[in-house]
Structures are given as C-alpha cells and as structure tokens.
Design a protein around this nucleic acid. Structure first.
Lengths: 306, 306
DNA sequence: TAAAAATACTCCATAGGTATTTTAT
DNA sequence: ATAAAATACCTATGGAGTATTTTTA
C-alpha cells in the first residue's frame, strides 16, 4: 500500500538525482531509501529512475509522477492547514439566523462586519425568519445559531442565552399630533397618553412575546389598548404606522429605520418596556467559527455615540 | 508524520460515522483505528470528530478536511495511473526530429496519425532540421529520436538504425523535352540520357551523402554531371527545378510533392540510386512512448497501393 | 444498561540501521 | 579503482490485535 513516505522519498531522490544524498537530506540511510523507492516502483509497476554510476535519473514515468507527487504533498499540507484554520474559527461556514427585528440591531451589523474583516475565509450565510422557524432550522442543523427576541423557554437540546435588552420606543405617523418633527431629540411620551390611540402590533404566531408585554404595560398605565391591526412581522408594523393605521411600540434599534412618514418617541410608563435579544444555539459543543461569534457577541457593547 | 493511511482511515470513519463499523470496512480492529484517528487529530491540533454514544460526527475541522482528503486519495491513484500509462507508452511527451526530405515520407505521416489516434495523451513535438542539427539535438536531449537520411557512422552514444531504402527518381521541369505530361505512368529514363543536363543537387553541409552517390552513379553511366546549383535543403531543389534551373534526383517519397511545373521520371542506370532512411536515437534505454514509436516504424511497410 | 470509544498490554510486520556485495564507468 | 546502488541481515518502532475500562445517552 502506497504511503506519503514513498512520495516524499521519491521527490527527494528526484531532486537530488542521487540516492545517498537524498537519504542524507531525509535523515535516513541509503539502503532503506533504496528499498522504499523499489517498493514504490513495484507499486507503479515500472521503474521511476534509471540507475547510472553517478546517480539516478528520472524515467518518463518518473517525470510524469514528479509534479503530481509534489502537488499531492502540497495538498496534504494545505488540507491539514485548512482543518487547523477551521478549528481556530478562521475558516468554515456559519449559518446565522435572525428575526426581522434583530436584523437592524447594531450588534448584528457589527458582527457581520467583524467576520468579513478578521475571518474572510468564513462563509457566512444569513437567514431571516420568525423565531419558530429559526428554532426549527437550528434543530435541523440548517442554522448554527440564531438571534431571537423571545426566550422560547429553555429547551433541552438548545441553549438560549440572553445577550442584551434594549428599550422600546413609540413609532407613530409623522403627521400625528404627538409627533413633534421640529425637535432634534425624540420627545418623551407617557404611556397613558396613548389611551385613545389605535395600535399596530406584531403578534407571534404562537406563544407569548412582546405583544403580551405591551398589553400588560398599557393596562398598568390605566387603559386597555385598542389593537387595530396585527402584523405578521415586526417590520411590517412600520409600514402600517407610516400609512397612518395607528401607532406601534418597537425595539429602539428599529428606530434607525427612519422611513418616510414615521416619527419616534421615547416612552415613559409604569412598566418599562424592554425588548430582549437572545442567542439560540444547539447544546452540542460549539466549534470554531461559532465560538468566535459567541465570544464576540458576549463582549459586544453598543458604541458610545450612536 | 502524517501518512495516507491516516487519510484513508479518516474518510472511512467520516463515511461510516462509526469507528467500529469503519474498522470492519478497513479490515482492522476498532482500537488501532481509534489510535490512528487520535494521531491524526494530534497532527491537526484539533478534534476532527465529536464522540457520541451512537457513533461519531464530523467537527467543522473534519468537514473542512473530508473533501480535501478524498481529493488527495483520488489524486494519488491518478498519479500512479499516469505513471503507469507513461511507462506503457500511452502518455508522455515525445520529441521527434526529421530531415526535410523525410518529412514527406509516408512512414512519418502514418506514424503521426497512429500516435494521435492510439495514444492521444502523448504530446508529440516535431522538429525539422538538417542531419547535423538533429544529431546535436539528440545529444542535448532536446529530441528523443530523429529520422535522418545519412548514416553518420555509428557514434558511441547513439544508435542509427536503418529502417528502409527507397528508390530515387528524376525531377525535371514539366516543359523539359524528357517530360511526357500526357502519360499516366512516369516514363523511365536512362541515367546516361542526362549527360547534357544541368543538375540541381542538395549538398550536406559536411560529410558525404546522396550528393556523392549521385555523382558516382553518373560517372558509372559514362558522364560527369554538370552541377549548376547546390541547394541547402532537399526541398529547395524542387523549387529550383520548377523554375527551370535544371534537373534533380530525389527520393521517391518526395515525388508526392507534385508542385506546379515539375515532372517526375523513373531512373534506370548502372548503379541503382537508393535513398536510405535511418532512425537515430540515444543509446540510453528507450522508454515508453519512444519504444512504441520504434516498434511501429520497424514493423511499417508501405501501403500496397500508394 | 447498553453501545461505543478509549485505554492497557502484547505481538509482529516492517521501516530503518549496519555491513557487505554488485555494478558501472 | 571508485562511486553508487543493491542486497543481506539485524534492530526496534509503532501499527495492529486482544482484553478491559471508561463514557454517555
């Protein structure tokens, strides 16, 4: 059975044109080298060298083999090095999912920037979806990790790690009486002032979420909100708000989506409305690129002036 | 030091997802396989498999390595097979030289056709030159073999093997009184009828050759030929004949170059004028493609109706 | 508890070392 | 006569085998 040793020895002999010198270079004696070359020739079924009294020269078969042997030895080194880089998280593929609202968070944007820059050999595939779908994709190994907004409990096979929590803000049509377009800083509005408003809210397909929290906060502020429209995705609420269908309460990071026709206001209420961000992943030991991502998002802090 | 064995075992384990099953497939026991995989992981510096209680699964590093390992194992097989094909003369490169007069011989044409057809992986390089240059190129390893017309003695380092000998024919301008354009078969002309003609002859840069033979044959026929022009290459004599500068005596195979303005005639004389064809090569053991060529030209016989 | 991998040890095949012979110029 | 490769023989590393333990679901 042929081994890399045979190819290493063959290349050395071809380069030296001399068994004894090649043996020296390889750190072995001439007789075992002679035997290994003979074993290789037996495997090939034809001589690779012509024996002269001043050394050896490649036969045609040897000339054919030499560049291929060199390439194989280089490929082996390259393959091992690629595996090492992958283990170090400098290479590989990483499938990251996120809910539509997380897509606008500066953490996600800066993560992508960091990976592109410091580990360009990582093939990043980003996938947007609702929390349900993302969790299913994680379980099906179609994603390595996902940024989600709802805790989803703590399933046996997954780790749902809280990363940060951000304030929620009020989004309202810019022609709305509560919007004050002239001002630089967003106004602060008390939650109870929204008692008469129509709300446009994102509702998770199943289970509790921000929806329930918002309802609860309004109740605590003394009114039961009138929900005029429920949106299937958090981004769609913004379109509906811009269209004047009502007001909405959204994570602060989405306010950077300063689309036409929308104004934002800070909220003041009895219950502070917070939108948490979680990182979900399988319990299986994180590998390479993923642990790099985890390290990064754990250490991440919002840029001071943003 | 990593060996192909490690890669073979790695691929088997990756494909089976199970050390014990992979060991069965490889015809070894599980413990040594476990050790070899560990040795590979030590070499890589990172685990390639995640051990579960139902088998093993590839890590990211393992996933990176797997296609590369497969490619390497395939390349090794391919390299050995290429060497074998080269040894069999089905592959490789072959540099063949020939004098300008041999270029038109059907043997050379059929040789090229045979190689193109039955061994397309042989890269043929053809080079034309005078005998001197061809011999020098052979010695300098720039050619593997050459078809020449003059014996050049039998140098120590070369083998000059006679292949065949062909009749020489008379080439004369087609308006010449001896030319009889109406006839299908070339006329037979006695050498002594050329006593009054002007000859255009190819003369080797050094040493004797066809030139001397032709002069000798004319003398035997009772006259000393009047040489009007000497040409540096045999093909050039034909141009000169076509231009009416005189008549020439050329190998039969060149008569197929039926250029405008030239007629051919068979010769009858006291000395039969023959043009031999030799194959020259180095004494070094012929390899692969060359021995294929040699076998072919030795066995070659002119096609019956040509 | 069961299934699989890892460890501990033993053995032997063979890579590699030493001494010598053969070969080719 | 010399330089190099091949052969013969010996040694010992490590690959593979057997028995057992450890690990994890």
């Amino acid at each position: 059975m042929i081994e890399l040793r045979h190819l290493r020895y063959f290349v050395a002999v071809a380069e030296e044109g001399h068994l004894t010198r090649a043996a020296g270079r390889l750190g072995i004696q001439q007789p075992p080298l002679s035997q290994q070359i003979q074993a290789l020739e037996r495997e090939v079924g034809a001589p690779l060298f012509l024996r002269h009294s001043r050394g050896v020269a490649l036969t045609d078969a040897g000339q054919t083999l030499l560049p291929r042997a060199r390439a194989i030895l280089g490929d082996v080194d390259g393959a091992l090095e690629a595996a090492r880089r992958t283990a170090r998280g400098q290479m590989g593929r990483l499938a990251v999912g996120f809910t539509s609202s997380a897509a606008f968070h500066p953490l996600v944007a800066s993560l992508v920037r960091m990976l592109r820059q410091s580990a360009p050999e990582i093939v990043l595939s980003l996938e947007e979806g609702n929390t349900q779908d993302l969790i299913a994709a994680l379980r099906a190994n179609r994603l390595d990790t996902a940024f989600v907004r709802s805790p989803v409990g703590q399933p046996e096979d997954l780790v749902i790690e809280p990363l940060l929590s951000e304030a929620m803000v009020l989004a309202l049509p810019d022609r709305h009486p509560l919007a004050t377009p002239g001002r630089r800083k967003p106004p602060v509005i008390a939650l109870r002032d929204l008692a008469g408003e129509t709300f446009v809210l994102y509702r998770r397909p199943s289970g509790p979420g921000l929806y329930d929290e918002i309802i609860a906060a309004c109740r605590a502020a003394g009114f039961s909100p009138h929900v005029g429209q429920e949106a299937p995705r958090m981004v769609s609420t913004l379109s509906l708000v811009a269209a004047g269908m009502g007001v909405s309460i959204i994570p602060e990071s989405m306010a950077r989506l300063a689309g036409d026709g929308i104004a934002y206001a800070r909220l003041d209420g009895a219950i502070r409305l917070e939108a948490p961000l979680y990182l979900a992943r399988r319990k299986a030991p994180e590998t390479g690129a993923l642990s790099r991502l985890i390290d990064y998002v754990r250490a991440w802090r919002p840029a001071p002036a943003s």
